[in-house]
């Protein structure tokens, strides 16, 4: 299987005035194609710093990093932007949709920045297909403030999928959602994973991590535990149970 993410001895130091803070103290991690990995840890454990580096948003680090076989350390800022556009789909805790911009326009954003040759019809079909994948084809013309939190996160997932990236990086995707909606989002991510998408999510909730196939635990800038989840929980089933519970 292809290695989508491969990092070796990743180090990152923040300089706050006189104080040096070592956020990452030599991280080694591999994520292979089709995996669903949860990065866990308390705040300050270095997991967010790691995600920024993995997402090619931060290039100020020491160590080795290959993304889908590409040595990221060798790339210019310009090329990194292209990597973010084509290889990575971001999902954020606070959705990060453009305000006063329809779901359709939000989803098509990566296509506008990529130099992908698409006919107007193909372009439209691609966007609508991704919206259909997250179950929001009928709400393509809604603005974020007309959508619920769960729906907004779905739009964000559709946006992450639209340029068919090698990996989806989700930073606490359920952090702002209630239990039921969290299960819905995890159900969607599990479905995408079953279709072959590689997904890396950051969470500090054990029950969310339980839906993934591997847990990686960060503490104080180091990976302290890596654990394969033998029997990942099924989000669809959990959702059904949750609904029954709410009904009674």
């Amino acid at each position: 299987m292809n290695k989508i993410i491969e990092v070796q001895d990743l180090r990152k130091t923040f300089h706050l005035d006189e104080i040096k803070v070592e956020a990452l103290k030599g991280i080694g991690l591999e994520v292979t194609e089709g995996e669903f990995v949860a990065v866990m840890g308390t705040s300050g454990s270095g997991k967010s710093t790691f995600m920024n580096i993995a997402g090619c948003l931060d290039r100020e680090f020491k160590g080795k990093y290959w993304l889908d076989g590409i040595d990221v350390t060798q790339l210019s800022e310009h090329q990194l932007a292209d990597i973010r556009n084509k290889k990575i789909g971001f999902v954020f805790q606070s959705y990060n949709l453009l305000a006063r911009t329809t779901a359709y326009e939000n989803v098509e954003l990566p296509l506008l920045y990529g130099n992908i040759k698409l006919s107007t019809k193909q372009h439209r079909e691609t966007v609508m297909e991704k919206l259909a994948d997250v179950g929001l084809a009928d709400r393509y013309d809604r603005y974020p403030n007309q959508l619920s939190g769960g729906q907004q996160q779905r739009v964000a997932i559709a946006r992450a999928l639209v340029s068919n990236p090698a990996i989806i990086l989700a930073d606490e995707p359920t952090g702002n959602l209630d239990t039921r909606t969290s299960y819905e989002i995890m159900e969607l991510l599990q479905q995408l994973n079953e279709q072959g998408k590689t997904i890396l999510i950051v969470t500090h909730e054990q029950d969310i991590a339980a839906f993934t196939s591997r847990k990686v635990v960060f503490r104080d800038g180091r990976i302290v535990q890596q654990q394969r989840v033998d029997q990942p929980k099924n989000a669809s089933r959990m959702l059904q149970e949750q609904l029954l519970q709410e009904a009674s």
């Binding site: 997402g55 948003l57 800022e77 310009h78 932007a81 292209d82 973010r84 556009n85 084509k86 971001f90 990060n96 949709l97 453009l98 305000a99 954003l109 990566p110 920045y113 990529g114 946006r159 340029s163």
Partner: peptide, 15 residues
Amino acid sequence: REIGIRLSVGAKARD
């Protein structure tokens, strides 16, 4: 924030 979002989906500084 909008600029951050655009950068994260692959906008280049030039864009």
